[in-house]
Simulated scan of single mutants.
Amino acid sequence: MDNRTKETIRYLGYGNHAVDSTTIAMISDSFRNLESVANCKSIYRIFDLHETDENYYKIGTVHLESRNLSKNLKGCHRVVLFGATLGAEVDRLLTRKALMSMAEVVVLQAAAAAMLEEYCDECQEEIRVSLEREGEYIRPRFSPGYGDFDIHYQRPLMQMLDCAKKIGLTMTDSFMMSPTKSVTALIGVSSTQENCHKKGCEVCGKKDCIYRRDTV
């Protein structure tokens, strides 16, 4: 079983329970459908990072406050602003499936989330390789909405990246992304290499979450 299938099963909330063959087949079909319509795009820019006070940072003209983000960026002097999307056709596919089968659309939603995560990991690996040539090292991605890093910071970060023009990514007044299968994130940049490339479940304290990865 490949990693994207395992991630989809995790997003479906199976935990340690066995997955039936019908669901596995639906996951495979979902990825085939997604690969036929997805138009993956990403953008990133690197900014100087200024710590103005404890848990407070300034990137360009944007001021950020977050205790959780501060832990992630400790020791960093620059930051990568990153945005990525699977494209509008994935949303259209989800809408069509919702009219046909709710079971299929639930699996498709999970598969799209896993595909987006996989794409972001690939993009981040390219950024890592590029920066390490310069003797700099990256931290894990950290997105608005993680911990106490307010989702409202999504809008200024997207504006700094010019996401609407560059990759067709916009945001509604209720802070929903369009296309929905999209993400923005900060990636800290440090001059020292640290064994800190953990993300998501590995840094979350909610041990009883049904979506939790096996981090043992």
Rank of each mutant, 00 (worst) to 15 (best):
N16F: 09
S66T: 07
L34P: 07
S70L: 09
S178R: 00
L93F: 02
I59T: 01
R133F: 05
N68Q: 11
D48W: 06
D148A: 09
T215M: 06
A164L: 03
E35P: 06
I187E: 01
S190N: 09
D20H: 14
A25T: 15
V183M: 04
S143K: 10
R96K: 14
Q124I: 13
D2E: 07
E35T: 08
G168N: 06
S70A: 15
S30M: 05
V105P: 04
Y146K: 05
F47L: 07
L86S: 02
R45P: 07
E51T: 14
V19P: 06
T8V: 03
T52F: 03
E89G: 01
E202A: 13
R213K: 07
S190I: 07
N16H: 13
L186I: 13
T170P: 00
L69C: 13
L81R: 02
Y56Q: 15
I167N: 02
T170Y: 02
C76V: 13
L81D: 02
A103G: 10
N16T: 13
L94F: 11
G168C: 04
I59D: 02
M102G: 10
Y14G: 03
T170E: 15
G188D: 11
E202C: 12
N33S: 14
G200S: 08
Y14A: 01
V80N: 03
K58D: 10
R155H: 07
D20L: 10
G147S: 12
G60R: 00
G13K: 11
E117D: 12
A185R: 01
R139S: 11
S178A: 07
G60I: 02
